[in-house]
Nucleic acid binder design. Structure first.
Lengths: 259, 259
DNA sequence: CGGCCAGTTGACCCCAATCAAGGATCGTGG
DNA sequence: CCACGATCCTTGATTGGGGTCAACTGGCCG
């Protein structure tokens, strides 16, 4: 099998996800960001989980649904999005392998946004019943999950800052650096290159600007030698300039157990 | 004692909060939005809680701090905000009586934003130790709190939509309607009039626009007969127009136990 | 080969920022 | 009681960032 960078970067292929590796990205992240106990992780890995594959652009959860399962992204990328009355759409968050994008439905029934696969994805589904039982049995697991949703909330807050205050030029770099830091945690950054499988239209929807303007920002970033984005892959050209533009302070990601 | 609308609307006075009423707004909200068990609420009310008063504009929590307590807003208004390198500030959320704005610090130590009193406030502080013990002892309390942080996150997501996609005219009305719905839950709306003790500068920081522009939007809303905002108090003039502008779909507030 | 969708660029326009100058309100001290 | 300074509100003039519209390119796939 030839080296396929898109596979290595976790963009595409979903067929080679084995039941062993479903939990791998989540566990990898939890181990570095929390003091997760091995027993808790083992208990998680013992949960019954149903694998399902989704195609690019397929909707995983629709606004208004009442799912009876929570999903774990084993491979691929998803986004949360909301569409308002006039048809304009906002992307709320980007989700990567190891993320649990609808844990909140354990506590309230209805999803209040869409969850859409950006790339071909492999998702694992665990029933609420099993999760609730495990949480009661193992408070440590409850803590892990609760914390996860809290970091998710912290990321949303930073997203508000990004959309509300930063210039679009800074905004895009901030978004990219955040994604890189999160991808790093699950081993999806190779050689300062990583996947960001959004079209320019979708990047615009994440930033609150049009695709036309996104295109111009990307051109500027390319011309200025900061980074290149081609076919869903980012390559950083000048780390120093990138940092300067993004003004990224990663504390809100709470990457270590004590922060 | 004369009728003081600012007091009735929960804007100002903090001196008359008794230890009986500290928990009242939180309990009122939990009772309508969740199926909170009375025993769980009683256990909460039995927690040792330290009352502290804050003046308008006083900082309650500073970005980077590591608090050892969580706070409950007994009376008054606070905001979360973040300031970026160039000095621009974004208000992330508005907090009202009954809110628990830093529950997240139970799970990660460092606050990643500021918490500032908008008006004179009475806050109750409960130590992390006591909260963690209670949560272990009573899973029902853990569920209440976890759910609370999840609704907080849902509100942040809607805030992203507001800042990213809605026209500023719609944006302000949406913000106002959301606040009204939340204030209604804790009995702080009287006669379609309620407190929103933000300066126009702060409203601008909440919406990602300047105070000058906020002023013009408010003028338009007044001229169009939609609503009036004077000295921190909103009066709705035309509910129909307001609804039309705000396009408010309150599902994300998850106001009933099953939603 | 042809259709389709993402990306690219130019021309034009409008919403909101910026800059600037007054006006209203309020707490404080003479 | 009035003078004051501070803060917030208000409005006009000007500028600029980003939206809109439109045309064209290029890669991919049936």
């Amino acid at each position: 099998m030839l080296f396929d960078p898109r596979r290595a970067l976790g963009r595409g292929g979903s067929s080679d996800v084995t039941s062993d590796s479903i939990w791998a990205p989540l566990f990898q992240r939890l181990k570095t960001t929390t003091g997760a106990a091995d027993q808790d992780l083992q208990a998680l890995a013992a949960l019954p989980i149903a694998l399902r594959n989704y195609r690019e652009n397929q909707t995983v959860l629709r606004d208004g649904e009442q799912p009876s399962e929570c999903c774990l992204i084993a491979d691929g990328f998803c986004v949360r999005s909301k569409t308002i009355a006039d048809g304009r759409r906002q992307i709320l968050s980007i989700h990567i392998p190891g993320d649990l994008p609808n844990l909140q439905n354990l506590h309230y029934g209805t999803v209040d946004h869409d969850l859409v696969a950006l790339s071909d994805c492999t998702l694992g589904f665990v029933g609420h019943r099993a999760l609730k039982d495990l949480i009661r049995e193992r408070p440590g697991v409850a803590d892990l999950f609760w914390r996860d949703t809290l970091v998710d909330a912290a990321i949303s807050r930073e997203w508000i800052v990004n959309v509300g205050q930063r210039s679009t030029y800074n905004r895009l770099t901030h978004l990219i650096v955040e994604l890189r830091e999160r991808l790093r945690l699950v081993g999806r950054v190779i050689d300062n290159t990583f996947a960001i499988p959004l079209t320019q239209e979708q990047l615009g929807e994440a930033m609150g600007v049009t695709s036309v303007h996104t295109n111009r920002i990307l051109r500027d970033l390319r011309v200025d030698g900061v980074l290149e984005l081609q076919r869903g892959t980012v390559r950083i050209l000048n780390e120093h300039k990138l940092q300067e533009l993004a003004q990224f302070d990663g504390r809100y990601l709470h990457l270590s157990p004590l922060s």
